[in-house]
Design a protein around this nucleic acid. Structure first.
Lengths: 212, 212
DNA sequence: GTGTTATAACTGACTGGTCAGTCAGTAACA
DNA sequence: TGTTACTGACTGACCAGTCAGTTATAACAC
């Protein structure tokens, strides 16, 4: 077995390691109460070393949010690509599955949760997240809705309400499971929960009469 | 005009005044970064006086959450009373209007926002909120759904998905407007947004054929 | 009314602890 | 032997919570 050298020489990997550690500590304690010393220890470094890679604690938060926003923006871009699909209904179902799978996983939703908790205090973070993630996702959802309306798959509902109806349940799922420890009674599988939600959103709560 | 006495004698009103100030400061800075001195000043007191009414900063947070949870629990109780109504569809529409009106108002949603941000770090707060607010609301929603199913107004959808579909958009609305400064494009009135959402949830995204 | 006293309400300087950020020094590698 | 990566003790600022002292009010006396 190769002995892990006590002092590893891989400065290229350090920033990401530090951001991982920072996410974990910020997530557990919140930005203000998080100690840089703890982040350093979790990253396997001393406090001083962390300051070789980031000029301040706030820079770590920014780096973290940027990284996460980048990933989410990519996911949203994929949605754009899927914005004018052959089958809007299937695309919508797939989107809900993605959303619930991501929002139900504490490792994945840690960054969005952090942004929710801290964005009010850091206007640049809110603005960055808004332009990089929310606006992109909004455009993707609008495109999906428009495609569905064009093809006759969807009714011409209000786009903003559509956005809230689609994304909101995902956020609620995240809050209920990851913040309040609220396991669903029956649908513990995120995909099953997404399907149940798709059923409500697509067919509505009112009983439906058979199509002619 | 009556001159406001510099040192007012009304110890009974103090705790609530302090909690109001605490909500405002916690909301702006978060619990950890909030300074007791600032809360005191906002309540028109010195720091020392605050400690005559609350033993610690954390006690203020707890008091605040308890107060807010009490109010929300009351609102949820009203929903229970409305759980087996004559007209489940009208009740559901009314519920969404209440939810969006509350969640769109920064003064009203400040407390829930704070709980969202801090609950992960204060297990008792999460537990308290869960038992006093979330469980009550969940029971109310289940009762509403069950009543609707019984009367034939609603289909028999999954209760947990129903809860997420109903509450989630309200949370999304709160996040978009109060955290990210995201004004809707068209429906700036919360009641109109609620109605648009009700349209989606009740009738579904798919085109509906006329009832026979 | 006008002193006198008691006490409830409050003040703000102070203490002790915490922690972000620094830097002189050390270890590992080339 | 020079350079890069890192360490951890240290400093200065900040702030929760305390407490000796101050002020407003009430209560009672005359």
């Amino acid at each position: 077995m190769t002995a892990l050298p006590k002092r590893r020489r891989r400065p290229d990997a350090r920033p990401d390691e530090i951001l991982d550690a920072a996410l974990s500590v910020f997530s557990a304690k919140g930005f203000a109460a998080a100690r840089v010393e703890d982040i350093a220890r979790e990253a396997g470094l001393s406090k001083g070393a962390v300051y070789l890679y980031f000029p301040s604690k706030e820079a770590m938060l920014n780096g973290l949010v940027e990284q996460s926003a980048g990933q989410l923006a990519k996911a949203a871009e994929q949605l754009v690509a899927l914005g004018a699909p052959q089958d809007p209904e299937a695309a919508f179902r797939g989107l809900l599955r993605m959303l619930f799978t991501a929002m139900g996983d504490p490792d994945i939703n840690a960054a969005p949760r952090l942004v929710f908790a801290e964005a009010a205090r850091f206007p640049e973070i809110a603005a960055h997240y808004r332009s990089q993630v929310l606006d992109v996702a909004r455009r993707a959802l609008r495109a999906l809705l428009a495609a569905g309306v064009r093809s006759g798959a969807f009714r011409d509902v209000d786009a903003d309400a559509f956005m809230r109806a689609t994304a909101g349940p995902g956020i609620a799922h995240m809050a209920l499971t990851s913040i309040f420890g609220f396991p669903p009674d029956r649908l513990t599988d995120p995909a099953a929960m997404a399907d149940a939600l798709a059923d409500i959103l697509l067919d509505g709560l009112k009983p439906r009469v058979a199509a002619p």
